[in-house]
Design a protein around this nucleic acid. Structure first.
Lengths: 147, 147
DNA sequence: GTAGATGCAAACCTTTTGCCAGGCG
DNA sequence: CGCCTGGCAAAAGGTTTGCATCTAC
């Protein structure tokens, strides 16, 4: 599992160049935040971090950049019932997550049983499988202690 | 896997009574739609179906009823990147889904590997696991034909 | 220089809340 | 008949769009 921030940053920038997109300060800044952050921030959280260095950056630009990176497969988008999406720019391909339903913390997991199953699902359903999502929901040790 | 509409309807109504909630025409109507519909409708779709029989029913009531049933564990809520949630009232406990990314169709799946894994996740992480979600995303045969 | 990007304001969509009239138990 | 529920209007997020200005190449 890729976890090196610098490598991820380079990969994102290279991917932008390859497709002919311009390398703007805003895009580099968003890419850096995604590549360094091993949490799973919301758009708003990325924007807040961004404003510390570039106070004039707009939320709209973050949304557009996220959408662009998502389309390029450089960021993974996870929708939740709470309404907002969380983003994983460190490990942008489908992988399992462990979500604390109390504090919202999201951890990446190492278990990976779904890839083997995808072929079976494809055979029995006729679908061409393009991705998957595996989440576990629970209460983290810290929140259990505070109950 | 439960698939009998009448049994589901009875289960939902019984569950409402047990908890002291009132049995109103609107709640019965929503429960019937959920129990009969083996698709995975949005709140808006449920409301549209509801209006055919009860033209004055409001969208707000559907939201409130869905929220109530969700809290009772009588309906499963699935959030998607598209913004709106889809609901499964026929099989209200966590189970795998197969989602067509082109037309939005959602099928229930029979594969079930995650329950065994949940214990392992709980042991290694210290989380108390309360649920999970397993989705496969792909293109259904019909949409493949039209490509 | 020019196509493409930024950023403001405003629109949009889904969901939630405040409130009062109305109906279930 | 009292309390819960339904439904209107309005608010509250989160996300997208229109458009003028600016800038990376």
């Amino acid at each position: 599992m890729i976890k090196d921030g610098q490598a991820r940053l380079d990969a994102i920038v290279t991917s932008l160049k390859e497709r002919g997109y311009r390398i703007t300060p805003q895009r580099i800044a968003v890419a850096e935040i995604l590549a360094r952050n091993d949490g799973h921030p919301t758009v708003k959280q990325v924007h807040d971090q961004l404003r510390r260095r570039f106070p004039t950056t707009s939320l709209v630009t973050v949304y557009k950049t996220m959408s662009l990176l998502k389309g390029m497969g450089q960021v993974l988008e996870l929708a939740f019932e709470s309404g907002s999406c969380r983003y994983d720019g460190l490990v942008p391909y489908p992988h399992p997550h462990l979500v604390c339903v109390t504090c919202g913390e999201i951890l990446d997991l190492q278990v990976g049983i779904t890839d083997e199953v995808a072929g079976e699902v494809s055979r029995t359903s006729g679908y061409r499988i393009v991705g998957h999502r595996l989440d576990f929901y629970g209460v983290c040790p810290r929140c259990q202690a505070g109950e």
